[in-house]
């Protein structure tokens, strides 16, 4: 922790719980729900998004004095799209199975509101070190939420975790959980649990609807 940048534990930890991008800000729900039908898919999606979040945040933070205000959104989008293209080709090279499972959703990281939202709200105003730490926190928070959702859906819907059978042959899989409705329902229950815990802790969290944070 360096004093100069004012990096504190909160810079990192805000993204984990208090400002969790999925559970509090409700950003980036589309990839969250679409690829969370198994633990491995959601984990790799989370990591890919974290990489784009950190690298685009770092570049935008470095360039923040040179980007004219009027065209900043377009500039951010082009920077983000460049990193996403890199991730897209990398995943294709590492594992074709994973690439096919995630489908167009890797390329759709471009329009994930978390990334543009952080670029606009944080990276464009803060120095490099702080931005990277914050992006790491946000990415970890996103990955954790995504992984929890994916793991719950895979355990209930297929009776396995990371493809390893958990309950033996007598378990009747709850197939609806890995189908689209399951995504909505499990995330809704996660939000309920999250709100419940926060209500117990006596904290009030203002939940925003949709991506209004991004702009």
């Amino acid at each position: 922790m360096s004093k100069k940048d004012g990096i504190t534990w909160e810079t990192f930890a805000d993204g984990l719980w208090r400002d969790n991008p999925v559970l509090v800000m409700l950003l980036g729900l589309c990839p969250t729900l679409a690829v969370s039908n198994s633990a491995i898919n959601s984990l790799s999606m989370g990591l890919a998004t974290t990489f784009v979040l950190i690298s685009s945040g770092a570049l935008i933070s470095l360039l923040r004095r040179f980007i004219p205000r009027q065209v900043r959104i377009a500039t951010y989008i082009v920077i983000i799209a460049t990193f996403v293209t890199m991730v897209d080709y990398t995943i294709q090279a590492i594992s074709l199975d994973l690439y096919n499972a995630l489908g167009a959703f890797i390329q759709l990281i471009v329009v994930n509101c978390i990334i543009l939202g952080r670029a606009e709200a944080y990276a464009s105003k803060n120095p490099l070190g702080k931005t990277v730490v914050n992006a790491l926190g946000m990415g970890t928070g996103f990955t954790l939420a995504l992984f929890t959702l994916g793991a719950i859906r895979e355990i209930l819907g297929a009776g396995s975790l990371f493809g390893v059978d958990l309950f033996g042959p007598s378990f009747e899989p709850w197939v609806v959980m890995i189908l689209p409705p399951g995504g909505f329902i499990v995330l809704s229950l996660m939000l309920l649990a999250f709100n419940f815990i926060n209500a117990r802790a006596g904290r009030k969290i203002e939940q925003s609807e949709g991506c209004s944070h991004a702009a």
Partner: peptide, 15 residues
């Protein structure tokens, strides 16, 4: 109270 807003909307979406 805890179900107000997003959680309820998502449940509706599920249905």
């Amino acid at each position: 109270g805890i179900a107000k807003g997003a959680a309820l909307s998502l449940m509706l979406g599920g249905l």
